[in-house]
Amino acid sequence: MALPPDTNTPASVRDAAQREVFLREVDEAVRQDQLEGFMSRYGKLLLAGIVIALLAFAGWIYWDHRQTKAREEQAEAYVQALDSLQAENLDAAKAKLAPIAAAGGSDANVTSARLLLAGIALRQDRKADALKLFRQVADDGKAPQPLRDLANVRGVAADFDAMKPQDVVDRLKPLAVPGNAWFGVAGELVGMAYLKQNKQDQAGPLFAAIAKDETIEDGLRSRARQLAAVLGVDAVDDVVDEKGEPLGKPAAKAADATDAGE
Rank of each mutant, 00 (worst) to 15 (best):
N8K: 13
T9W: 04
S12E: 15
V13A: 04
A17V: 13
Q18E: 15
Q18T: 06
F22V: 00
F22E: 10
R24V: 06
E28C: 05
G37Q: 12
R41W: 00
K44C: 01
L45M: 00
A48W: 04
V51A: 15
I61F: 11
H65D: 11
H65L: 02
Q74M: 13
A75P: 01
A77C: 00
Y78T: 04
A81V: 06
L82Q: 12
S84D: 15
N89F: 01
A92N: 08
A93H: 11
K96M: 08
L97M: 06
L97H: 04
L97T: 06
A101P: 05
A103T: 09
G104K: 12
S112V: 00
S112A: 13
A113P: 00
R114F: 00
R114V: 03
L115M: 11
L117V: 02
A118D: 06
A118S: 05
A118N: 08
I120N: 10
R123K: 14
R123A: 10
Q124I: 03
D125F: 01
A130V: 02
K132E: 14
F134T: 09
A138W: 02
A138T: 03
K142I: 00
P144V: 09
R148Q: 13
D149A: 01
D149I: 02
N152G: 10
A157W: 06
A158V: 04
F160Y: 14
D161E: 15
K164C: 02
D167S: 10
V177G: 03
V177P: 00
N180S: 07
F183P: 01
V190F: 12
L195N: 03
Q197M: 15
Q197R: 14
N198R: 13
K199L: 14
Q200C: 04
Q202V: 03
L206G: 11
A208E: 07
A211S: 08
E217W: 00
D218F: 01
D218M: 05
R221M: 10
R223G: 02
A224F: 02
Q226P: 00
V230N: 11
V233E: 14
V236S: 09
D238P: 06
E242H: 02
E242G: 08
K243N: 13
E245K: 08
P246I: 15
K249L: 15
K249P: 00
D256Y: 06
A257S: 01
D259K: 14
E262W: 05
